[in-house]
Amino acid sequence: MMITLRKLPLAVAVAAGVMSAQAMAVDFHGYARSGIGWTGSGGEQQCFQTTGAQSKYRLGNECETYAELKLGQEVWKEGDKSFYFDTNVAYSVAQQNDWEATDPAFREANVQGKNLIEWLPGSTIWAGKRFYQRHDVHMIDFYYWDISGPGAGLENIDVGFGKLSLAATRSSEAGGSSSFASNNIYDYTNETANDVFDVRLAQMEINPGGTLELGVDYGRANLRDNYRLVDGASKDGWLFTAEHTQSVLKGFNKFVVQYATDSMTSQGKGLSQGSGVAFDNEKFAYNINNNGHMLRILDHGAISMGDNWDMMYVGMYQDINWDNDNGTKWWTVGIRPMYKWTPIMSTVMEIGYDNVESQRTGDKNNQYKITLAQQWQAGDSIWSRPAIRVFATYAKWDEKWGYDYTGNADNNANFGKAVPADFNGGSFGRGDSDEWTFGAQMEIWW
């Protein structure tokens, strides 16, 4: 008995050590931004985005507190085989008060198993909700290839000249389909599951310092038995992507060409959309029709120009041509140079221009935006974070068209359509004006 009692403290210590080691193995990653800002004409900070554009130049032009908190852990490992559990909870508030209630979004919860298939060394099996191989332009917060959501897949299969990845994910639309009631009355209240099937071939070395990635995505509306879509709904579509990445000037340049059809055009990033119906009456549900095509040509990157200068840049042309004439032509160009006074202090400027032409009206909206920021960051790279910055932003815009969301679809035949700025004596778009804002912001990723 005495021997047992003497061994007990040692056993407890060993158990505590094991539990401590396991606790220390938890990975904590994430992203956050928050700050305070004012508008020159009075009131809180207002942000500037061109009507019809899918993004905006973000430096000194973000008006919310946003965070993603990721917890993950390698829960099992034997040799080169392992299982990893990953989670991500995100939230966004308007940064107007101390207490701002919000419903967090559970954006990731997945398990990734590496090297589980003997004859596919280096590959990963995964299932669950996941940010899946996302491609974006940081300076405009624009995701041009992103099929994230609940799904499953097999990735990084070594095929000799590259890595092959296969995945299936889902994005549902509210009110996407109906069941038959009586007297030809349909009640569009059932969600429609939109499935996306993704095939990618990446890391193909085609020139010194250059790699090529090719991808095909097929999206479709997956209806339940005895349900139907509204007439004209976009049932399926394709997205084709080619991306060349070149190492240059201690950074990279990415050149991207994408072509999409029908349900893959509205978001243009790989998620299927077009079966959703915002109104019970299918007579007024025309606005979900996105049959047509999209072409996107994009070049972006980040480079170092000597010891003291870094720069991000982007140039993009996007043409969404829809059968219902509600598409757009959008082109944007911008730069973000950074001058480093010390390894932790810099001055950053961002200059961006957007131009969006309405397919329906032929009119154009444009905006110039310039931001000057003094910044303190954890390192001497344009990617170094955390960063604390004080900024001043000036924007000038001239908008000739907007979307008509007055009333509702039952009493407005133009609901959701592009109209000229002065349509029917109204005021659509943001008109011709300018404004400036100033404030302070922190940004961090880890």
Rank of each mutant, 00 (worst) to 15 (best):
A15V: 01
D404A: 08
A90D: 09
M349K: 03
N61D: 07
D236N: 11
V230G: 05
V26L: 05
L10M: 06
L223S: 04
N291S: 13
A90S: 08
C47F: 08
C47Y: 03
T189A: 05
F279S: 02
A378D: 06
V137F: 10
A105T: 06
G153D: 00
D80E: 11
Q367L: 15
Q46L: 13
D432E: 14
D187N: 10
K254R: 01
G431V: 12
A409V: 03
D363E: 09
N194H: 07
T51S: 13
V111G: 14
V14F: 05
S178C: 14
G327A: 11
H29L: 06
R296C: 00
P121Q: 15
S266P: 01
M316L: 01
V230A: 11
L249P: 05
Q359R: 11
T328I: 03
T50I: 12
F161I: 11
G429C: 11
G306V: 06
F106S: 05
A387D: 10
Y227N: 04
V196G: 11
S82R: 08
A202V: 05
W330C: 07
R224S: 06
V89L: 08
L239I: 12
N290S: 04
D98N: 03
F28Y: 07
R58S: 09
Q267E: 15
D354V: 02
H300D: 07
G425S: 12
A21T: 05
M139T: 05
T87N: 06
T189I: 00
N324D: 04
T393P: 06
V314M: 01
S82I: 12
G426D: 04
G268C: 02
W331S: 15
R200S: 14
M338R: 12
N321D: 02
G17S: 11
S427I: 15
N190K: 01
E399G: 02
C47W: 08
V419I: 09
G301D: 00
F197L: 12
L214P: 00
V159F: 13
D98Y: 07
V356L: 12
A105V: 08
G362V: 06
S171A: 12
P386L: 00
E100D: 08
D231E: 10
S266A: 10
G232D: 05
M204R: 13
D231Y: 10
K417I: 03
E399K: 05
M349T: 02
D434N: 14
W397C: 05
F161V: 15
G352D: 01
E108G: 02
E155K: 15
G232C: 09
K417R: 07
G276S: 02
A418D: 14
G162A: 14
S384P: 15
A25P: 02
N194D: 10
M294T: 01
Q203H: 09
Q49L: 12
K56I: 15
V196D: 10
N290Y: 11
R130H: 02
W401L: 06
Q45H: 12
M24T: 02
A181T: 07
G327V: 06
D86A: 12
D410H: 13
I36V: 11
R58C: 03
N308D: 02
V137G: 14
I3L: 05
Y368F: 11
R336G: 13
A21G: 04
G160D: 12
D434Y: 13
G327S: 03
D262G: 08
N184I: 05
N88D: 02
K400I: 06
D307Y: 08
M19L: 09
A202E: 13
N326T: 06
K329R: 08
P9L: 12
W331G: 03
N289H: 04
E213G: 01
S433R: 14
G35V: 03
T406A: 07
Q267H: 06
Q359E: 05
P121S: 05
A25D: 01
D187E: 02
N207D: 04
Q246L: 12
E357A: 12
Q203K: 13
E44G: 09
G327D: 01
M349L: 08
A23T: 03
Q112K: 15
Y317S: 07
G176C: 10
K340R: 03
F85L: 07
N156H: 13
A242D: 08
S34F: 06
M316R: 03
A32P: 14
V356I: 04
T265S: 07
K400E: 12
P420T: 15
A32S: 07
E435G: 12
V75L: 12
G379D: 06
S346G: 00
L271R: 07
G429S: 09
A409D: 04
K400N: 09
V89A: 14
I288F: 15
F279C: 13
W76L: 11
Q96L: 15
N88K: 07
F106V: 15
E100G: 01
D354E: 09
M264L: 11
A278P: 01
K269R: 05
A302E: 11
N324T: 09
D136N: 10
F180L: 04
I344F: 07
N253K: 08
N290T: 13
N291I: 04
S179Y: 09
G52S: 01
K235I: 04
A23V: 02
Q22L: 03
V26I: 00
N222D: 07
D325N: 08
M312L: 05
D141A: 11
G334A: 03
A13D: 06
T189N: 13
N207I: 08
S234L: 10
A174D: 06
A15T: 01
A11S: 12
R385H: 03
Y84H: 13
G162V: 10
K70N: 09
W76C: 09
F28S: 04
N308S: 07
D136Y: 07
Q203R: 10
S177T: 11
N88I: 03
G274D: 00
H138R: 03
K364R: 07
K250E: 11
D80N: 07
A302T: 04
F197I: 11
N289S: 07
G43A: 00
Q359H: 06
I206T: 14
D103A: 12
V348A: 01
D380N: 08
S234A: 07
G425D: 03
N365T: 13
V14G: 04
G429V: 14
L10Q: 05
R33H: 02
E205K: 08
M442I: 11
S272L: 00
A233S: 08
A392T: 03
M19K: 10
Y188N: 04
W341S: 06
S381R: 14
G416S: 09
A392S: 10
K417T: 03
Q367R: 14
G113S: 12
F83I: 04
G210C: 05
S275A: 04
V12I: 06
S433N: 05
D187Y: 15
W145C: 13
L295V: 01
L120P: 15
G276R: 10
K81R: 15
F423L: 13
V216I: 03
L271M: 09
T192N: 13
G60R: 13
G327C: 10
R228P: 01
A202T: 06
G42V: 05
T332P: 07
R6C: 06
N366S: 02
E78D: 11
T4I: 02
S179A: 14
A387T: 01
G72A: 15
D103E: 14
D310E: 11
K56N: 13
Y188H: 03
A23G: 05
Q441K: 14
G407A: 15
T406N: 09
F255C: 14
D236Y: 08
M24I: 05
D432Y: 14
T211A: 15
N355K: 09
M338T: 05
G153V: 14
V390I: 03
F284Y: 13
L214V: 08
F240L: 05
I36N: 07
G60D: 04
A168T: 04
N88S: 07
N190I: 00
M312T: 10
T361S: 04
G128V: 09
T342R: 02
S92Y: 11
S346I: 02
E173K: 00
A242S: 09
W436L: 14
D98E: 03
E173A: 08
A174S: 13
N408K: 10
V18G: 08
D217Y: 10
V257F: 05
D86N: 06
T347S: 07
N326K: 07
E213D: 06
W330L: 03
A413S: 10
L116M: 14
W331R: 03
V277I: 02
S123A: 13
F83V: 06
Q49R: 02
M311L: 09
P104Q: 13
Q96R: 09
P121L: 09
G17D: 02
N281S: 08
F252L: 03
Q377H: 05
A378V: 02
Q54K: 13
G379V: 12
L8P: 14
D323Y: 08
